[in-house]
Amino acid sequence: MAAVKRIPVTEPVWRELSEMRSAGQTYAELLEDMIEERKKRRLEEDVKVWHGRRADEFVPLSEIKD
């Protein structure tokens, strides 16, 4: 069984989270969904940045030293 952790939140945040939950959805499931959405958004933002770069901004891997 997973360890139970408590995350203190303000009353307004608690209400917002409660309104976001689907019927039967646990808070853990809601948070998991929110985390996944955030990861996808970050990846999309990173891809947009990379697509906006010019080829001469990149360094060949062979030139990178540890």
Rank of each mutant, 00 (worst) to 15 (best):
M1F: 10
M1T: 11
A2Q: 12
A2V: 09
A2N: 11
A2D: 11
A3R: 15
V4L: 09
V4N: 04
V4I: 10
K5P: 00
R6E: 12
R6T: 10
I7Y: 15
I7Q: 10
I7K: 10
V9F: 04
E11G: 02
P12L: 10
V13T: 15
W14N: 10
W14C: 07
R15T: 09
R15Y: 14
E16N: 04
E16S: 05
L17A: 05
S18E: 15
S18H: 13
M20L: 15
R21I: 01
R21Q: 09
S22V: 08
Q25Y: 06
T26P: 03
Y27F: 10
Y27V: 06
Y27A: 02
Y27W: 09
A28D: 05
A28P: 01
E29W: 09
L30A: 01
L30S: 00
D33M: 05
M34Q: 03
I35E: 01
E36H: 10
R38W: 13
K39V: 10
K40G: 03
R41K: 13
R42A: 11
R42V: 12
L43N: 05
L43Y: 11
L43K: 05
L43A: 11
E44L: 14
E44T: 10
E45N: 14
D46T: 09
V47F: 06
K48H: 12
K48W: 07
K48V: 15
V49L: 15
W50E: 13
W50S: 09
W50H: 10
H51C: 03
H51P: 00
R54K: 13
A55E: 14
E57C: 00
E57K: 00
V59T: 14
P60W: 05
P60R: 06
L61Y: 13
L61A: 14
S62F: 02
E63M: 01
E63W: 03
I64C: 06
K65M: 00
K65H: 03
K65N: 01
D66C: 00
D66E: 09
